[in-house]
Design a protein around this nucleic acid. Structure first.
Length: 765
DNA sequence: ATGGACAATGTTTTT
DNA sequence: CATTGTCCAT
């Protein structure tokens, strides 16, 4: 499958010396080398506990750091890099550090920079996916795609699978694209090619067929999916000794964060990369493995010890983040998982406040309660909005919360890339850029060929596709040719009326393509937006159209940073942003995020909501013990994000499918000993009568700490506000009245108006 | 070719 | 319920 040409001779920098050469005599102690920055490093080491120090200054060879939550794992990792460079004189160029999110990578880079000043030039620090993309672009000669490949996101992947299923005349009911795609993705993560796909029945056979076709389409589009980035790189290193040696020699030290979340492809990749120097330093915690569904296998930790028998294992157990009360709850939850080495988490921070468990009547009340608790703290000035995080199992749960936050006026932010990059208008513009960058990308072509409408209907597209097939080229290339010289295309008459429109679009595309090197990504984007009248297309006079255009402008702003790095880098960044990456610490706002997105973060006060059977643990996990263990780990991750206070919330009923349904509290709650919790009913907080009688007797205890909370006044005199219809105005007065806020506003357009904050669509400017 | 109306269908987590 | 897809009328 992989066809590699004869290996090019590896280019090795002069400093790429094998182990045990003059550069490294073996294990050495901190500071016994002539480095540049020893005093600074040594000083810093004093702030580390003995285990952390041991990890940072460990000698050569494989190192496994088992790090509990809040144990200073990132610190050890960054400090280790600084130590290698600053004290051992390793050149940054020879260090590879891999993380799972761009955010983690950025943070690490920052910290290393802080430690070393400018000595980090050339350091390879990035996500698995980004590092692989870089290698693959560099080695594209040896690969069945070329260097300007695009990276398909989940939607693109799904369309490709759908097309394959359609082409093969399969029943979409039985072969659901999402399911088939998941199967393909799993296979890829296990490094199984279509030919290796294990077949035991008709379904497997069909999946393998779809897989084969899917893979062919990707190549035809000069595209790679997320899994391909890992898969192709792993295969490159596996099949080409020259390539393997090149990278394995170069990376004298390989460091890996969140090692428990690696999948087979990543594991093999790491093994190859470390195959020359064997200096592989991995940090992880099996209890925080929460990406099984993505192929992650925490058993890679065990595999590591087996594959590298001389591994030095270091345990970090002291927690510097949470109070003991929080850690006790965390341990109570996680200890129920079988087959796990019991870890004793401890802290010197003291017990702190007890963890609270609150029951509410329904999910709406749950959201209201969380927001009101936050509001009361903020009003009392005992905490700021930025101190709080609200965590939930599924993204859908964010909605009620967001509504509640909006109503209260407490600043909040929602973590999630989908919110921006998933928008239609953003995807459109990105598709234009991708198409110019790589005209073979048919998914992007299909997306934009008639957006905005330019008289190229379905029929015309199909004819174009057939014609392309006949002339053995991609539709995009044909379109380009058509734009440059319409007469040169045989059979173009068959296009009929659409011909003119196609030529016109082809000319546009060719024009953009000609400018690709002359213009910055932003410049190119501007040209495209002008040439397609994209603004006019979006601007239908509605508020939504306005919003969409603003999103385009936001994308433009993001592109502005890529004048130097270029279009490829921009598109890659767009493809590889994660939800976590969209989180910025700036702005004093409460954070709403999924438990998955919460990994690696910490907050003074954490709410975990929706602790109900079917939600957490999720209903789709209930039957599978392995998945149940993962749900438990997920809760564990959430709990251990909290520094000072943790509030667990569940409701007795929730709105599901539009129906009001009773739900059981999460079974995980049963595992927390009663004495570790303060249990509270919600009736004292929520001024709603009907709630009271419904609380179960043994759980509901009034607590004096829960006084009724005031509604929060959102508007202040003097504020400028925007109204959906009346435009801008100034708040003259505002008061709370009957569960609502009454605001007097003077509008430029209509003069003085009195509005109810809950009804009028008001935004503060 | 385009847009609107209706029906079905499906709801984890994300690089 | 909310999104997505399909069909139908213009």
């Amino acid at each position: 499958m992989l066809c590699l040409p004869p290996p090019a001779s590896p280019i090795l920098p002069p400093s790429c010396l094998p182990p045990n050469s003059a550069n490294f005599g073996g294990t050495r102690e901190a500071g016994d080398d002539v480095g540049y920055n020893i005093p600074a490093i040594m000083e810093y080491l004093q702030d580390l506990n003995p285990q952390q120090q041991q990890a940072v200054t460990a000698g050569l060879g494989p190192i496994l750091v088992l790090a509990g939550p809040g144990s200073g794992k990132t610190r050890v990792l960054t400090q280790r890099i600084a130590y290698l460079i600053g004290s051992l004189g390793v050149r940054p160029y020879q260090i590879l550090a891999v993380t799972f999110t761009n955010k983690a990578a950025r943070e690490m880079e920052h910290r290393v920079m802080d430690l070393l000043g400018g000595e980090t030039q050339g350091l390879s620090l990035g996500t698995f996916h980004a590092n692989c993309a870089r290698i693959l672009r560099r080695e594209a000669e040896a690969m069945p795609f070329n260097a300007n490949f695009v990276i398909y996101d989940t939607d693109d992947q799904l369309s490709l699978v759908k097309n394959a299923i359609k082409d093969l005349n399969l029943d979409e009911k039985y072969f659901r694209p999402a399911g088939v795609h998941a199967a393909i993705s799993n296979a890829k993560n296990e490094l199984l090619l279509p030919d290796d796909y294990p077949i035991t029945n008709y379904r497997d056979e069909t999946v393998a067929t779809v897989y084969r076709r899917y893979q062919e389409s990707l190549l035809a589009n000069n595209a790679l999916d997320f899994d391909d980035l890992l898969l192709w790189t792993a295969f490159l290193l596996e099949e080409s000794p020259a390539a393997r040696e090149k990278y394995a020699r170069r990376y004298e030290h390989v460091l890996v964060d969140e090692f428990q979340d690696t999948n087979m492809a990543q594991y093999i990749l790491l093994k190859h990369l470390a195959s020359f120097h064997h200096n592989i330093f991995v940090v992880g915690d099996v209890d925080q493995s929460i990406y099984r569904w993505r192929g992650a296998d925490y058993r890679n930790v065990l595999r590591f010890e087996r594959d590298f028998p001389d591994t030095q294992t270091i345990l970090l157990e002291q927690n510097y983040r949470s109070t003991q009360s929080i850690l006790d709850v965390a341990m109570a939850v996680i200890d129920r998982n079988p087959q796990r080495a019991r870890k004793q988490l401890f802290t010197e921070r003291g017990m702190g406040e007890k963890v609270r468990l609150i029951e509410t009547e329904d999910d709406q009340e749950e959201a209201a309660l969380v927001v009101e608790k936050i509001a009361s703290q903020v009003l009392k000035k005992t905490a700021q909005p930025g101190d709080f995080a609200v965590m939930y199992r599924t993204n859908a749960q964010s909605r009620l919360l967001e509504e509640a936050f909006l109503k209260s006026g407490i600043p909040h932010k929602l973590v999630g890339a989908q919110r921006f990059y998933g928008r239609r208008e953003v995807k459109d513009v990105v598709a234009y850029l991708r198409l110019v960058h790589n005209p073979q990308d048919e998914i992007s072509l299909t997306r934009v060929i008639n957006t905005p409408a330019r008289g190229i209907g379905n029929k015309t597209v199909i004819t174009l596709r057939t014609l392309a097939q006949q002339t053995k080229q991609s539709p995009g290339m044909l379109l380009l040719a058509l734009g440059q010289d319409p007469d040169s295309i045989p059979g173009s008459q068959s296009l009929g009326r659409g011909f003119q429109s196609l030529c016109k679009f082809g000319t546009l595309l060719a024009g953009w393509k000609a400018q690709i090197n002359a213009l910055s990504p932003m410049g190119l984007m501007d040209r495209i937006l002008t040439d397609t009248d994209y603004h006019e297309y979006l601007d239908d006079g509605s508020e939504e159209g306005q919003e969409r255009w603003e999103n385009v402008i936001e994308l433009r702003r993001l592109a502005a940073d890529f004048a130097e790095k270029g279009l490829t880098a921009f598109l890659e960044q767009v493809a590889l942003v994660s939800d976590q990456d969209t989180l910025d610490a700036s702005g004093n706002a409460a954070t709403l995020l999924t438990l998955h997105a919460a990994k690696g973060l910490e907050f003074p006060v954490v709410f975990i909501v929706g602790l109900a059977q079917g939600t957490l643990p999720h209903s789709r996990s209930l039957e599978d013990p392995e998945e149940m263990q993962e749900e438990r780990r997920l809760l564990y991750v959430g709990i251990t994000r909290a520094k000072d206070r943790l509030i667990l919330v569940y409701s007795r009923r929730r709105n599901l499918f539009g129906y009001y349904e009773p739900v059981e509290p999460s079974e995980f709650l049963d595992d927390i000993p009663d004495e570790l919790l303060t249990r509270t009913g919600a009736s004292m907080v929520i001024p709603r009568q009907r709630s009271v009688g419904l609380f179960s007797a043994q759980r509901w205890q009034p607590s004096s700490a829960d006084e009724a909370l005031p509604m929060v006044q959102r508007f202040q005199p003097g504020q400028r506000v925007e109204h959906g219809i009346w435009g801008e105005g100034m708040v003259l007065n505002s008061r709370l009245q009957d569960d609502d806020e009454v605001v007097d506003i003077f509008f430029e357009s209509v003069g003085l108006k009195r509005v109810a904050a809950s009804l009028a669509k008001l935004t503060i400017i």
